[in-house]
Write a protein that binds this DNA or RNA. Structure first.
Lengths: 353, 353
DNA sequence: CTGTTAGCGCATTCAG
DNA sequence: CTGAATGCGCTAACAG
């Protein structure tokens, strides 16, 4: 008498019995069809279909001590930045047996820690994680991980295993330098909050202006200190609008500092909001006010006037990260530990005068 | 001599040995701490920390024939619509032991089928899937699933188990009716492609206009037939811009049909592009051209002039779906099979004349 | 509250 | 190319 209810799940044994072959043959037919004779394969396929057999991947993972899941951690899905990274990841996983699992840390270190712990418990094939701001606990876990770990979308000399990204500091610096070169002198900075990456941009902005002797803290508007984390059962309609924020910041700037002549927005949406503010006040862009954003989403080019921005390799980070995982799993060369993909300062009408 | 390399993974046995207790006590301490005495719990926790023990969830899943993973399938992550749904899902999972796993089908039925198959092989705790357009194969798999299955963001009389959403047809109809009521007569329709949901909006648009005797197929611009699936190693910069598309469609409309007086855009970004086109041509909105979008993202209110749109319960769909999963798992009442959350036609300046 | 035993479904190993 | 035995790490089911 079985101690355990012999779960009515269809197992590989049932399939083997029905097909009149050994269990191992079924297992092979499932994973390496080429190693099973064509005839047996047919019989087995039929048995599988008849019984409606569904392989249990948990059992497989336990027996083989590995899985085909690549975990991807991003801080936000609402910001298209990471959607593009994820798109790259998906493009990179094609024609492989791997599966992509997305995890949203929501800019919370606690959540990230929990998720990494949970991911490791599942014995992933690889991990792709955004940024370099992991807590010591996260970092330790990731260092101990028995699989490829790739960091993306930022830059550091000391990656966990490998990093593929670009320098936010340098990006902020170069865009600011472009504004200076274009003839702007009172260049403001708009951001809703600063994290490691956006903070880097701000550093670059500040460095460029200080070098030029133009830095003015009064032109910096960081409004809120907290990272984005819409939460607490907010409904869509109750969300704080970044575009509206950009508009409000521009109104405020126009009121407070009528001498300001340009703004570097930490985000494209902020820039769009700022543009609308100028539109409604009759402030001409780029003549009276230069506007630049960051990310270069599609609508920047489509705006009127077209808005300058910094184009960053979002898709490429995701794609290359997945390829690196695959190379590593295949036992091939892992390549350099640090890959700097760079960025482009895209100059459009909004900063041309 | 062991047949198998006794993998150097730390197991629950190691912990039990070190703590000087039974295996089962460790297992309990991990999952139901309240059922283990405080003292033992301490000893066990220390042993876990000392050994750096990581529970193997695959083994747990195999032994208990269930997991804590709720799979969420969405057709796109680039469109914020689904990001909001996912946000709702995350908010709904809090204070539960469940974990969220996001899957991106990329508007591909094949991908969706593969993913659903893979998900089922992992014995999920629940499944949340977008829309009602599952292929027969998908539908069959989901009907067979031994876990709660919730469809979201659309409406049907025959859900797999339960659906939480709203009617796209009705939404399209009501927005169009609003435009008619506002006095517009030559109302165009812009869309980049039609799938089940956007197609529903078009149906509603058409129905409203036909009822009013105003339908004109020449005012419908569906440009492309294919659903969005940026792909084939496109980099960010090479993506086709929806905003630019909206702008181009408006230019085309202004050229082809100078008598057109309004447009219902299938998507907010399209509407933004259309607005920029009017800005650059000096066409006054809403006087000469009414513009309405769909989704009501934050930037619609922030635009100049503010743009009308249809606000849909994205967050609520995700949140309620997760709660339904939890209720079902807890053995509580599953509630009605069909939940219509409705929507709001948001009238702003862009359609007020 | 605690421990023992058996087995979840599959892949590894090694022999045919 | 095929198959039989063994155990992956954990938890259900009982007994104490």
């Amino acid at each position: 008498m079985p101690v355990r209810k012999s779960g009515k799940q269809v197992t590989i044994v049932d399939v083997a019995t029905r097909a009149g072959v050994g269990v191992m043959t079924v297992s092979r037919a499932l994973r390496e069809p080429s190693k099973v004779s064509k005839e047996l394969r047919k019989v087995i396929d039929k048995a599988i279909a008849d019984l409606n057999y569904i392989p249990n991947l948990n059992a497989r993972a336990l027996a083989s001590t590995r899985t085909d899941n690549v975990a991807v951690l991003v801080p936000s899905l609402t910001q298209n930045i990471f959607s593009d990274v994820i798109r790259g990841v998906y493009d990179g996983v094609e024609d492989s047996a791997l599966r992509v699992e997305i995890f949203n840390t929501r800019y919370s270190s606690e959540v990230e820690e929990e998720q990494i712990a949970a991911i490791l418990r599942h014995q992933p094939a690889g991990i792709i994680v955004s940024g370099i701001e992991q807590t010591p606990a996260c970092r330790e876990m990731l260092e101990r991980a028995q699989c490829p770990v790739i960091q993306v979308m930022d830059m550091t000399d000391a990656p966990i295993q490998k990093i593929i990204g670009f320098s936010h500091v340098e990006a902020g610096r170069q865009m600011t330098q472009h504004l200076i070169d274009a003839g702007y002198r009172k260049i403001a900075f708009f951001a809703r909050w600063l994290n490691g990456r956006s903070g880097g941009r701000f550093q670059g902005y500040r460095a460029a202006l200080e070098t030029a002797g133009l830095f003015d803290p009064d032109l910096v508007d960081l409004t809120e200190g907290e990272p984005e984390r819409p939460h607490g059962h907010l409904q869509d309609s109750q969300q704080i609008s970044t575009a509206a924020k950009g508009r409000a910041m521009m109104y405020d700037l126009l009121d407070r500092r009528p001498d300001a002549d340009a703004v570097f927005c930490n985000t494209d949406v902020l820039a769009i909001g700022a543009l609308f503010a100028c539109n409604s006040r009759g402030v001409s862009v780029p003549e009276k006010m230069g506007i630049a954003g960051f990310n270069d989403f599609d609508y920047m080019e489509a705006a009127w006037p077209p808005l300058s921005s910094v184009r960053i390799p979002r898709w490429q980070c995701g794609y290359d990260a997945m390829l690196a995982v695959r190379r590593q799993l295949a036992g091939e060369d892992f390549g350099p530990a640090v890959v700097d993909l760079g960025f482009d300062v895209v100059r459009r009408e909004s900063t041309t005068r």
